[in-house]
C-alpha cells in the first residue's frame, strides 16, 4: 500500500505529458482547417477541445484509447469482428500453443546440449544465429511455406511464437541443468545412478528456478511472435490484424487500443507464470 503513492504520481505525470503531446501533435490539423476556412487561427483555449477528441488524431488522447479499449472489450458481443476479446483470444491461443511448443523445444535442446558434446558445440551457435534474424523477415516465409503445405491459421502463428520463445528457455535450462554442484553429482555417482536418473531426480528439479525466469521472458516473446505472425496473413483475425487494419484505414485510436490490449495481455500472461512460479518454488523449498 505504501508504494501506491509513487505509482499514482508517475501515472499522473505520464497522463499529463501524454495530453500535452496530443495537443501539440494534433494542433497542425486544426490550424490547417482554420487556414482552409480562411478563419482566424484558434486561441489556445479553443485549440485544446479541438485536439483531444479528433476522429483520426496523430496521437490519440488517453481517454479516447481507454474508451475504445473498454468499448471494444466489453461493449460488444465477443463473437463480433470488432470485439477485442475475440481478436485477443485468437492471438492468445496462438501465443499459448507457440509457448508450449517453444518451451518443450528449448528444454529438449538443453537436455541434448548437456548430455552430448557434439550438440553442446553445434546447437548453441545456430540458436543464437536464429535470434539475430529479424522476425518480420522470417514470419512471411513461415506463413507461405506452411500455406503451401496446406497448414493455415493457428499453427503457423504458433511456430513463429515458438521460434521466439524457445531461445530464452534453452539458455536458462542449459544453465539450470548444469546448476547442481560436484558434490551432488558425486553423491549420485556413488549410488550408481544412470544419466536419466540424474536428469529426472536432480538436474530437472534443480533447474526449476532457471526455467521459470526463462518462461517469463518466453511467454512475452511468444505474444510478440503471434502478433507478428498475424501481420502477413492479410489481417483477418487477431490483435496483429487489428493493428494492421487500423493502420490501413488511419484508425489511430484503434491501433492504440490494440497496442494497449496486447500490453495488458502480456502483463497478464507474465503474472500467471509468476504466480505458478511462486507456488511451485515455495512447495519445492526453493523460494527466494
Amino acid at each position: 500500500m505504501r508504494s501506491l503513492g509513487p505509482v499514482l504520481v508517475v501515472l499522473a505525470v505520464i497522463t499529463v505529458l501524454w495530453y500535452a503531446a496530443a495537443v501539440w501533435l494534433n494542433s497542425a490539423w486544426v490550424y490547417d482547417q482554420a487556414v482552409r476556412a480562411e478563419a482566424e487561427p484558434p486561441s489556445f483555449g479553443q485549440l485544446v477541445p479541438l485536439t483531444i477528441n479528433q476522429e483520426r488524431p496523430v496521437l490519440p488522447t488517453p481517454h479516447q484509447v481507454v474508451s475504445e479499449l473498454v468499448g471494444s472489450t466489453f461493449g460488444m458481443s465477443i463473437t463480433s469482428k470488432k470485439s477485442l476479446v475475440y481478436h485477443g483470444w485468437i492471438t492468445v491461443s496462438a501465443t499459448l500453443l507457440g509457448f508450449v511448443m517453444g518451451t518443450l523445444l528449448g528444454i529438449m535442446l538443453a537436455v541434448g546440449i548437456i548430455h552430448n558434446r557434439a550438440m553442446d558445440l553445434s546447437v548453441m551457435p545456430w540458436a543464437i544465429a536464429s535470434q539475430t534474424i529479424p522476425i518480420l523477415a522470417i514470419a512471411p516465409m513461415i506463413i507461405v511455406v506452411m500455406n503451401s503445405m496446406g497448414v493455415q491459421g493457428l499453427v503457423p502463428k504458433a511456430i513463429i511464437s515458438a521460434f521466439l520463445s524457445f531461445f530464452p528457455v534453452l539458455v536458462g535450462m542449459v544453465k539450470g541443468l548444469r546448476s547442481p554442484d560436484h558434490m551432488q553429482l558425486d553423491l549420485l555417482a556413488t549410488y550408481g545412478a544412470t544419466k536419466s536418473q540424474t536428469l529426472w531426480k536432480l538436474r530437472l528439479p534443480a533447474s526449476m528456478p532457471y526455467l521459470f525466469t526463462s518462461l517469463k521472458v518466453g511467454i512475452a516473446a511468444s505474444l510478440v511472435g503471434a502478433i507478428v505472425g498475424e501481420l502477413p496473413t492479410g489481417a483477418v483475425k487477431g490483435l496483429g490484424a487489428r493493428l494492421l487494419s487500423g493502420s490501413y484505414y488511419g484508425q489511430t485510436v484503434q491501433i492504440w487500443a490494440a497496442l494497449f490490449a496486447a500490453a495488458l495481455v502480456a502483463a497478464g500472461l507474465v503474472a500467471i507464470v509468476s504466480w505458478v512460479e511462486r507456488g511451485t518454488l515455495k512447495r519445492m523449498g526453493m523460494a527466494r
Binding site: L187, R283, G285
Partner: peptide, 26 residues
C-alpha cells in the same frame, strides 16, 4: 555409503524423501 561435508539434502524432498533417493535409484 558416502557422507559429504555438506549434508546436500534436496530442498524439494522431505527428509524421508531424501533418504529414499538412493533406494529409488537402486
Amino acid at each position: 555409503g558416502y557422507v559429504f561435508q555438506a549434508a546436500g539434502l534436496y530442498p524439494w524432498r522431505t527428509i524421508a524423501g531424501n533418504i529414499k533417493l538412493p533406494l529409488e535409484i537402486m
